[in-house]
């Protein structure tokens, strides 16, 4: 079975992001970047399935700047076989990525698409579902388990309050949640090998996909800082504040 994994290059989740002085976005120049953690889990899943003999080839795809090749190399160092970068300097939004993926799926015919459930930069949680919709395929988001069997797969999803199990027909799109697996550390020999694996760079135009953003970001700001605390009179007041002001219970 051939698997396609979509990955995204994001600001390293350990980096505290800063809003640009003009409020037009978040400072990403010269910031440490990394593969989106959920995408890393998606790659890991594909590699494990290959190691288990279920998967024969892993194709990893990303959309974005030339530097996204690094992300593909990381995925290939983890065990993906080849990569495709759809190169653009446009701020690609989930719908555009989904259309790119659709075009690549049409050429590559994977049986399974694995993606991260969301990217930790824009927190959209959309792309996997959109790919499934555009392909007319079933989907399983937030999965913690996937077991392909013939023309279908058994999946376990993390839903509010517990787990849900589904049988989905293949081909399908699944999106990885945290508990699906724990990604491996990339090994040094595999970093070296990844350099030699095929990496194709194509433009969205070549796929006939329009990646123009649909949403315009008008401004970004940092949320208001925590004010200094208040001393409360009694437990009743505390409960009231937690419920109605802080809204945490």
């Amino acid at each position: 079975m051939k698997v396609l994994v979509g990955v995204k290059r994001v600001v390293d989740p350990n980096v505290k992001v800063r809003v640009k002085a003009d409020g037009s976005g978040v400072e990403t120049a010269n910031i440490k970047m990394a593969i989106n953690p959920f995408c890393e889990i998606a790659v890991e899943q594909a590699v494990r399935m290959k190691e288990a003999g279920i998967v024969t080839e892993i194709l990893v795809v990303t959309v974005g700047l030339p530097q996204c090749q690094e992300t593909l190399r990381t995925a290939m160092a983890m065990g993906a076989d080849r990569g495709i970068l759809v190169e653009t300097d446009v701020d690609v939004q989930p719908l555009a990525v989904a259309k790119v993926m659709k075009a690549i799926i049409a050429k590559e015919n994977p049986q399974l698409v694995i993606m991260g459930k969301q990217a930790v930069d824009n927190d959209c949680n959309q792309t996997g579902q959109m790919v499934a919709a555009l392909m007319g395929w079933p989907q399983a988001t937030h999965i913690s388990k996937v077991e392909p069997a013939g023309d279908h797969a058994e999946v376990t999803r993390e839903v509010d309050g517990g787990l849900e199990t589904l049988t989905i027909k293949l081909p399908a799109v699944v999106t990885a949640d945290l508990r699906l697996n724990e990604p491996r550390y990339v090994t040094l020999p595999n970093i070296m090998k990844a350099k030699k694996k095929p990496l194709e760079v194509i433009k969205p135009d070549a796929l006939g996909v329009d990646v123009t953003p649909r949403l315009t970001t008008l401004k970004v700001v940092e949320p208001a800082k925590r004010g200094s605390g208040v001393k409360l009179a009694d437990v009743a007041e505390l409960v009231n504040k937690l419920k109605n002001e802080a809204k945490v219970i």
Partner: peptide
Amino acid sequence: TGFGKNFMPRVAALLDVAQISD
């Protein structure tokens, strides 16, 4: 929630519109 996040992007893609999440 887990409910809305699951199918709404699918709706958006079928309508060929962006989704505004969360």
